[in-house]
Amino acid sequence: MKKIFTFIITVSLTALTLTGCSSKQKSGTVSTDGSTSMEEVIGVLGEAFQEKYNGMSFTYNPTGSGSGIQAVKEGRCDIGLSSRSLKDEEKADGLTETVLANDGIAVIVNPKNTLNDIDVDTIAKIYTGEITNWSELGGNDAQIVVIGREAGSGTRDGFESITGTENACKYRQELTSTGDVITTVSQNPDAIGYASLAAVNDQVKALLVGGVAPSEDTVKDGSYVIQRPFVLVTKNDEKLSDAAQKFFDFVMSDEAAPLISQAGAVPVK
């Protein structure tokens, strides 16, 4: 009796897997691969896309900008996601970028910190170790604890290239996710860190940069300077599959713009 039961379960499960596969093939799949910073934006867009085109399936592989660009180059996914602009040598490899949205990188401190306004030069001095004490900026006599992201992170890449501190930052902590940075800064009154504007909450205080508060409007009009693009990467010599083209058109449409803002980024449209 037990054997028969096991047999039935096995057969039905196998059948289920097989049907799962075949239905996927029928209606088309869009695969994306890349930036972890774009997780929220692409997640919201993917859901809406699947809802609109019933039966289409959408996948997102959060591997990081570099890996995503690599994946689209090798044809392992339809659309690569990158939270930085393509480098010249990547463009020379036959890749095209389409800016989907812009994202501000907020410079954050603990809410107990009295500092409210900072400029890009000062940020660079803090991160390169030229300014090491909050008292130099009119705060308490306490050592500045510099928090950043790990090597290769799109956020770190964006932040360091805008502040001109590439490979010169003296980090006290290198954390591996936006959430970890926010938690750590919220725990330590002397810490400073940077994080995607979309993820910043009231556990931490986002500083004004050069007198401009980071917000959707200031990112859009360019007055908030620490910002980077969210980019869709495609091959320029190869046509997208029907499904991927539909997805591409959908996310670039006016319809998708409010969804992108909802996820915290600033649509280009």
């Binding site: 900008s65 570099g66 890996s67 690599q70 090597a151 290198e174």
Partner: peptide, 21 residues
């Protein structure tokens, strides 16, 4: 001081790495 272990060296950079890195 802030330190990095053998295990965390692999784990923290793997997701973004490429090439010789």
């Amino acid at each position: 001081g802030s330190v990095r272990f053998l295990t965390t060296a692999v784990a923290s950079e793997m997701s973004y790495s490429g090439g010789l890195q």
